[in-house]
Nucleic acid binder design. Structure first.
Lengths: 198, 198
DNA sequence: TACAATACGGAGGGTACCTCCGCTTTATCA
DNA sequence: TGATAAAGCGGAGGTACCCTCCGTATTGTA
């Protein structure tokens, strides 16, 4: 459904490709279990691979995170299209943002890093932004067209705000949803705007 | 102006007190210059003190951060009372939140940690929360009484949301203020609420 | 099969964290 | 003031992690 494939540095030689897959899988597990500050040596061990192999393929921790994030980003985007098909303009946007927060809460630090990433400039993250932006803008523009969201708002601002919600280390799902209530209310046209448009 | 003094573990013996002060001063400088991930050994060196002395006084990095934060917290609280004296209910709340964000942006990681702290449970942070809560609630309750903020909102939710804004590593002041625009709009009673109360 | 290109892996050097304990300073009291 | 106990000091050193480098092993190709 996304128009631009996310970049992938998976190598072609058989052994290298096998180790690449093992490393990404091990990193995904380890990050989910112990957070993104799991030692890279631990990940290499899980993958049954030498530390040198890990570093050759992923020169930095960020590079490894990137590889893990590809799937997640794809999932975030896909859900946007799903909601667009099933719900009204505002409800689809809200459902998407709530699913984004819910996902972030469940995979704490992983998604926190992802949110920080929305401000970064690497080639990878730029591509991710393009995809997320495309998916999210569909929802946002529909809501704007329906007059249920203020027209001057920008998607990236909304995502940064929503992403910030998930940054707290001890954020419960209930609290996160209360914060999101405030944000959703903040997206709607104000009383004054409505009066002016009549 | 705050009713509860923030806790302080400054020791009484002359040499220990001197070293305590040196360490906090060195930490404040170092955190401001290089962020909160400055090595503790670097801070000990700046303070002209052995690493053992630092660890005896501050068993963790967090403990050292706490000592540095006391002044900042006090400043945040004081400003709340200042705005309360000079501005109307909603404007005072908005001014305080904007000053909070502005402060957070200028001292990036330091304030980011502070925000995370609002969810922590240490004795120190509990005391900080009490003070911030008292100062902020004054503003929030005035705004609620004036009918410019929805009555069901909780201060801590608002602060977590506002704090989340500052978590992004590359957040400009303009963007932060745009995000805050959304939040401020989200605090106001909705069109429906207003209609119902008439 | 032979060979060139590519990849593997772990030893090792560097840095930071934190603990432990022998030595030094301070406060107290006669 | 001088002796003594209590408190504090500091840095060596053990542990963990980061990352690089290079000799060895594997793979793809002709």
């Amino acid at each position: 459904m996304s128009t631009q494939p996310l970049p992938c540095t998976r190598p072609s030689r058989a052994d290298a490709a096998r180790n690449y897959d093992r490393l990404v899988a091990a990193a995904r597990e380890a990050f989910a279990e112990h957070g993104t500050d799991t030692s890279l040596e631990e990940i290499a061990k899980r993958a049954g691979v030498g530390i040198g192999t890990l570093y050759r393929r992923f020169p930095s921790r960020t590079a490894l995170l990137e590889a893990v994030y590809v799937d997640e980003i794809q999932s975030v985007c896909d859900r946007a299209y799903g909601f667009a098909d099933k719900l009204g303009p505002f409800d689809a946007l809200e459902a998407w943002l709530r699913s984004f927060v819910g996902y972030s809460i469940s995979k704490k630090s992983l998604a926190g890093e992802l949110t920080l990433a929305l401000g970064k400039d690497s080639e990878f993250f730029t591509a991710c932004k393009v995809n997320v932006n495309e998916a999210g803008s569909l929802l946002l523009n529909r809501a704007k067209a329906a007059g249920t969201v203020r027209p001057e708002l920008e998607l990236m601002d909304i995502l940064r705000l929503v992403g910030g919600i998930t940054m707290g280390r001890e954020m419960s799902a209930e609290q996160a949803n209360r914060l999101l209530d405030i944000v959703m209310a903040g997206l709607k046209p104000s009383t004054a705007d409505r009066a002016a448009s009549l």
